[in-house]
Amino acid sequence: MLIAFNKPMNVLSQFTSEGGWPALDGFGLPKGVYAAGRLDRDSEGLLLLTDDGGLQARISSPKFKKPKVYYALVEGVPDQTALDALQNGVRLKDGQTAPCKAEAVDVPEWIWDRDPPVRVRKSITDTWVRLSLSEGKNRQVRRMCASVGFPVVRLVRWSVGPHDLTDLAPGKWREVVGV
Rank of each mutant, 00 (worst) to 15 (best):
F5Q: 02
N10P: 00
A57D: 15
S123T: 15
G171I: 09
W128V: 08
L2R: 06
V90E: 10
R142I: 03
G19Y: 00
S61P: 00
A35Q: 03
R91P: 09
D94M: 05
R41H: 10
P8V: 01
A102S: 08
M1I: 11
H163I: 08
G136Y: 02
R139W: 06
R41N: 10
A72Y: 02
L168M: 12
V129P: 01
D164L: 10
G20C: 04
T50L: 02
L133Y: 00
C145F: 05
L92N: 10
N6A: 07
P170W: 11
D25G: 02
D164F: 10
P62R: 10
W21L: 10
V160D: 11
P170F: 12
L12I: 01
L47P: 00
W112M: 02
G149D: 02
E103N: 04
T97H: 07
E135M: 06
T125M: 06
K93R: 13
W21G: 00
S61A: 14
V153P: 01
D40H: 03
D40R: 01
F27C: 06
V107G: 03
T125A: 15
L133G: 01
D25S: 11
S132I: 13
V74T: 03
W110A: 13
P22R: 02
W21C: 00
V177H: 13
Q96T: 07
I124P: 00
T81D: 09
D164I: 04
R91D: 13
D79A: 05
K101P: 00
G19R: 07
D106R: 08
R139S: 14
P22V: 02
S43M: 10
A98W: 00
Y71M: 10
L24F: 00
R121T: 06
I111P: 00
A23T: 03
L168G: 12
R139T: 09
K122L: 13
L55M: 10
R139G: 13
S123C: 07
R157K: 11
W173K: 08
L24S: 07
P162M: 14
T16R: 12
S132K: 12
M144D: 07
K137G: 05
S147C: 08
D106S: 07
K122T: 08
V120K: 15
P151A: 04
F64V: 01
S134C: 12
G53E: 15
G19A: 06
A102T: 05
V69E: 15
D115N: 12
S13L: 05
M144G: 03
G26S: 14
P99M: 06
P8S: 05
A102H: 09
T81W: 00
P108G: 13
P151W: 01
S159F: 05
Q80A: 10
V148D: 02
E135H: 07
V120Y: 15
